[in-house]
Amino acid sequence: MAKERILMYASKQWSLNAYDYQIQKDQSPFEIVASPDLLGENTVHQAKGFKVVSIFVNDKLSAKTAEALANFGVGMVVLRCAGFDNVDVEACTQYGITVTRVPAYSPHAVAEFAIALLLGVNRKIHRASSKMLHGDFSLDGLVGWDLHGKTAGIIGTGQTGAIVANILHAFGMRVLCNDIYKNASLLLIPNLTYVDSLDEMLPQCDVVSLHCPLNAHTLRMVDAEFIHKCKRGFTLLNVARGGLVDSEALLKGLREGQVGAAGMDVYENETEIFFHDRREAGIHDDNLGRLLLLPQVLITPHQAFLTRDALGTIVETSLESIRQYLSGKRLHEVQHSLNKAPK
């Protein structure tokens, strides 16, 4: 049986290994063709001759790129992630391209990482490790604070946000939640309350954790006004999308002490930086460079999802979507499709 070739944009060895393992395990008739490049208008030509392409969080699938994919004969785009703010789904549907995602590969992986960032930046674990590597075993600059008895604000209570809320509640924190849709699993938990207004929530919170999607309404929601409303010295956590935070406003808040600390696994201009080795090329983003130098900031390279469990779910889910497409299902008929059914 001839193997179906799948072009994987933004490929990395850890991702290729996970797909190769599952394909061999299932004896699936697929062959992954790796491209280290991001999908975009300048790289879309690589998709010529493929029916299926796979993309990740920083690829850009615009209307123009969708048209080019369709002209090259591509009928399916498989996202190896949950977020799809980088994809013009409407244009893909117009050109008959099926678009699928992995909606819940491991909310526990991301939630647990958010807690790791909070503990790391609060208890100065990254600073302690760096000091010891340089022979400094003193405790200067390593004072943190107890989470127990403090107040955390969770913005977005989908699966990941709800898990973070539960973990922080287990630490003995008072938890305030804000979301258009209330998560039923949280409603009966004592000392955990939904607050309708951020104006009411933010001044009370020692920790603010972001778990909402990136869209026109949430783009740079953490701006100077948002930060001004927060409790002085609060800790900001972001494991959702980099574009939720205005980095200029964050830097100003950190310099002035309004923001006490920040733990982030994402950055608003991460596309050409994260997932790449920049040791020789350097970092040409001044705001990121400044943030990385601040002792009260802990930034990681979009790795919150990166567990064996999550990778396994991503691979299994995306391969099953491809099987359904190749069996004849199209657009909204395929599992986890982003294409809307016709009215």
Score class of each variant (00 low, 15 high):
residue 49 G to C: 06
residue 199 D to H: 11
residue 153 G to V: 04
residue 287 N to L: 14
residue 261 A to T: 04
residue 336 H to T: 02
residue 191 N to P: 02
residue 40 G to T: 00
residue 157 T to L: 02
residue 150 K to G: 09
residue 175 V to F: 00
residue 114 A to E: 11
residue 55 I to H: 04
residue 9 Y to C: 08
residue 17 N to Q: 10
residue 145 W to P: 00
residue 120 G to L: 05
residue 55 I to A: 05
residue 162 A to W: 02
residue 9 Y to K: 10
residue 297 V to C: 14
residue 278 R to L: 15
residue 293 L to M: 14
residue 316 E to K: 11
residue 266 V to N: 06
residue 13 Q to E: 11
residue 231 K to M: 00
residue 169 H to T: 11
residue 37 D to T: 00
residue 177 C to M: 15
residue 87 V to P: 01
residue 157 T to P: 03
residue 91 A to V: 01
residue 180 I to L: 11
residue 118 L to F: 07
residue 42 N to L: 02
residue 96 G to D: 07
residue 332 H to C: 15
residue 180 I to W: 03
residue 35 S to Y: 15
residue 52 V to G: 15
residue 212 C to Q: 11
residue 326 L to W: 11
residue 294 L to T: 08
residue 76 M to P: 10
residue 34 A to Y: 13
residue 114 A to Q: 12
residue 150 K to A: 12
residue 238 N to I: 06
residue 149 G to W: 06
residue 144 G to I: 02
residue 284 H to E: 11
residue 319 L to I: 08
residue 156 G to F: 00
residue 107 P to W: 02
residue 249 A to E: 15
residue 171 F to Q: 04
residue 312 G to R: 02
residue 207 V to K: 04
residue 81 C to T: 04
residue 77 V to H: 10
residue 73 G to P: 14
residue 65 T to K: 01
residue 1 M to N: 05
residue 264 M to R: 04
residue 142 L to M: 09
residue 242 G to E: 14
residue 173 M to T: 00
residue 106 S to H: 14
